[in-house]
Simulated assay, not measured.
Amino acid sequence: MSTENVLKVENITMQFGGVIAVDNMNLEINKGEIVSLIGPNGAGKTTAFNVITGVYAPSNGAIYYKGNKIVQNHPQGKMKKLYRGENPAMYESHRVLAPTPDKITCLGIARTFQNIRLFKSQTVFDNILIAKHMLRTSNVFTATFHLNGKEEARMREESERLLEIVGLTDVRNELATSLPYGKQRRLEIARALATKPELLLLDEPAAGMNPQETLELTEFIDEIRKKFDLTVFMIEHHMDLVMEISDRIYVLDFGKPIAEGTPEEIRNNPKVIEAYLGGADDE
């Protein structure tokens, strides 16, 4: 496994009013790894993903992608008085960096969502092609005068090839929402792959799947990791999937990281067991 750092989350806190959803989170992911983020419902996992992908600007902290700082903020305005996290002054002298999700995607970070968000009125093929347009170099002028024909043809060819790789060629002309649930999940992952990411964030990809679909998904994630030379960061509640596929696991509880390690280490960690099962009541 490579030791080249792809993602580094440094002292990230996300506070909404008086509620701290993510509390001074630190983590690192190296190239080629599959790293899972687990924790009870409401632990702050999806909020962490939203900060990494530009949906939220963090209340404090910084994020690095491939060694370059891409996100940075510190408590300011009303948050200066409301802030209850750690290190409030650490980034005050640094410039605020708050790229929008499309800018994050262009850097090479793509994601899926806990609730499937396909383009419902579009076909399977068009869902992929629309994502490809994220990387287009044409503009209004070249499109108006049909000067972008070669680029459009290349994107359509790449979309067809991607559908073949992920096993969706036979349903290319179906509406996305007409697919069985498992194939909709696969399509959402394929749409993310269409943006040519190096880091793929999967938010509960096995949610709503039966055991057979979960097994197929586990094999699919490992397969695309190898075929596309991906680094994968995943939120998941299906522990069989997490333990089977993860190189390392981080655990959140009430927004705060409480453990990090290999699947075997996490499985036997007393703090993790207590977070999921609850501690014994004092007598």
Rank of each mutant, 00 (worst) to 15 (best):
N87K: 14
A110G: 07
M134S: 12
R117E: 15
L97S: 05
E86G: 02
L135R: 15
L118T: 11
S93C: 00
L107T: 02
T123K: 04
A89W: 02
T123R: 03
L107C: 01
H133W: 01
S121T: 14
K132Q: 08
E92P: 01
G108V: 14
E92L: 09
R84D: 10
D102S: 10
L118W: 10
T137D: 09
S138F: 14
R136N: 06
S121M: 09
P88D: 07
A89G: 00
E86A: 14
M134K: 05
I109F: 02
V124N: 00
R136M: 13
A89L: 08
H133C: 01
Y91R: 05
T137E: 13
L118H: 09
N127T: 11
I109D: 01
T137M: 06
E92D: 15
T112H: 02
K132A: 01
R111Y: 10
T137A: 09
E86S: 11
C106M: 14
D126I: 07
G85M: 08
R136A: 12
Q122N: 06
K120H: 12
T123H: 06
I116Y: 04
I128C: 02
N139Y: 06
E86D: 12
K132H: 04
T100M: 13
G108E: 10
L118D: 02
E92K: 13
F119W: 07
T144Q: 01
T142K: 08
F125H: 13
M134I: 15
P99V: 14
I116E: 07
N139Q: 11
L97I: 12
G85E: 06
A110V: 07
K103N: 11
S121H: 15
A98P: 00
L118E: 07
F113C: 08
A143C: 02
L97N: 03
A143T: 15
L129I: 00
I104Q: 11
K103E: 15
K120G: 10
V124Q: 00
A110I: 03
Y91W: 13
T105K: 10
E86F: 09
R95G: 00
V96S: 03
N115W: 05
Q114P: 13
R117W: 04
T137Q: 11
T144I: 11
N115D: 12
K120P: 01
F141W: 13
V140R: 08
L97G: 04
R136Y: 02
N87F: 15
